[in-house]
Structures are given as C-alpha cells and as structure tokens.
C-alpha cells in the first residue's frame, strides 16, 4: 500500500517568490494496481513521480510505503530504498550507452550486492520476459530500436523485484504500435507480479485502460468522476 498524505513540493521561482509544483496532494494506491497520472504540461506530474520514487523529498506531507514513512529518510536511506523498492522507466530510456543490454539490466542488482552469476542469470530471464532475446541482449543501446531500448529499461526497472514501478511517459518516444506494446507489458507486470505500476501519460485512451487514474492541474489533484467506484 502506497499512501500519500498532503504532500507539497515547493520551488523558488525566478522572481524570488515560491510556488508549489505539487500542492497538498493525498491519495492511496493498493499493491499491484496499475495507475496513471494525467494532466497538462507543467502541472507537476514529474515532480510528483520523483517524490514517489524517493528521488527527492517533499517539502511537507508524508509518503508511506507499507507503513514506512519515506519522506523522513536521510540520503543514505533514500538511496537504499530506491535500489530495493523502486523501478524507474524514463521517456528517453536512459540506458548506460557503453554497457550491453544485459549489463544494463545487471546494474541495479550490483547496487544491492547480488553475486555476478545470480545477476547474469536473472538479467537473462528478465530480458526474455520483456521479449528481448538472443544476441540482442549483448548489444549496446545504440544498436537497439527505441521499443527494444524501452524493454531493456523495463527489465532494468524490474531487476530488484521492486514494490513499485514508476514510468514517466514511457511511450512518449515510441510509435503507437510500440507504445501500446510497452503499455501492455507494464499492465501485465502489475497483474502477474503484484507490482504497483504508476505511469504518467498524455494518451487518454491508454490512461483509460488503467485501474486508477489521477489528474493533476497546477499541482493539485482533481477528483476524477470517470473512475470506477471501487478506486475512488
């Protein structure tokens, strides 16, 4: 269970004032739910996601994951939490260019101290699972298509069996067919592995397929009337 309670993130604006990129947001997401965040550009979606992913601390409010308040963590604890509990997927993949697909997937496992053989075996399984097999696993990102790179990124996000996967516009750089495939892959993961997946998207039709939907405007969460009752 992910519980967000009245979190705000404040930035200093250029003219010396302050403004809330995320403004008093509260919601709850149950484990294994496939959720989406929608909203206009600049509404604070990415900022919210980085708070959920422990990449940054909220200015106020709390975020509890299975009863643990991650907003109170120090830097070291945040790093540790990220390594074990969060998987990140970016719009522009963000793979390490001079490592092969396999090595990219092995990387997060190194940070939690898994042995080399275990890492390699699990990385292969994950790549097979996301549909990247054979010699493509030995290729560097520069020699893979965007869709393939995003599959590698998803495999990397899954590496340490995180509780939550956060994806910021994961289909943004892909054509609609590829985008749909990636989206379906994430959907399956949440169902098969009981992983919570939160996706930022501009695609309303994709957002419509998610279990739970949050809409942000000017950093504030909107009540979404379209949501099924059970998720309200």
């Amino acid at each position: 269970m992910l519980a967000v309670n009245k979190i705000s993130k404040t930035f200093k604006s250029g003219d010396g004032g302050i403004f809330n990129a995320v403004d008093n947001v509260s919601f709850k997401v149950k484990q294994g739910v496939f959720a989406s965040i929608v909203g206009p550009s600049g509404s604070g979606k990415t900022t919210l996601l980085s708070l959920l992913g422990a990449l940054d601390r909220p200015s106020s409010g709390s975020i509890t994951v299975d009863g643990q308040d991650i907003s109170k963590f120090n830097d070291h604890e945040l790093t540790n939490y990220r390594a074990r509990n969060v998987g990140l997927v970016f719009q522009s993949y963000n793979l390490i260019p001079n490592l092969t697909a396999l090595e990219n997937v092995m990387l997060p496992m190194e940070f939690v101290g898994l042995g080399k053989l275990t890492r390699e075996q699990r990385a292969r399984e994950l790549l097979n699972q996301v549909g990247l097999s054979g010699d493509k696993q030995q290729r560097k990102p520069g020699k893979l298509s965007g869709g393939e790179q995003q599959r590698v990124a998803i495999a990397r996000a899954l590496a340490n069996k995180p509780k939550i996967i956060l994806a910021d516009e994961p289909t943004g750089n892909l054509d609609s067919v590829n985008g749909k495939n990636i989206f379906n892959l994430l959907h399956e993961l949440s169902k098969n592995q009981k992983t919570t997946v939160i996706v930022i998207t501009h695609d309303i039709s994709l957002a419509g397929k998610t279990d739970q939907r949050f809409s942000l405007t000017d950093g504030k969460l909107q009540k979404d009337k379209d949501l099924p009752r059970s998720f309200r």
Partner: peptide, 16 residues
C-alpha cells in the same frame, strides 16, 4: 552528468 543521475536514481550511492 545524466549518466551520473541515472546511476543514482537506480540505486547507486555517491560513494559508488
């Protein structure tokens, strides 16, 4: 810089 950010985001410590 970006690569450093990615390493940190996926769980590498500053020290590493």
């Amino acid at each position: 810089r970006r690569e450093i950010g990615v390493l940190k985001a996926i769980g590498a410590s500053n020290f590493k």
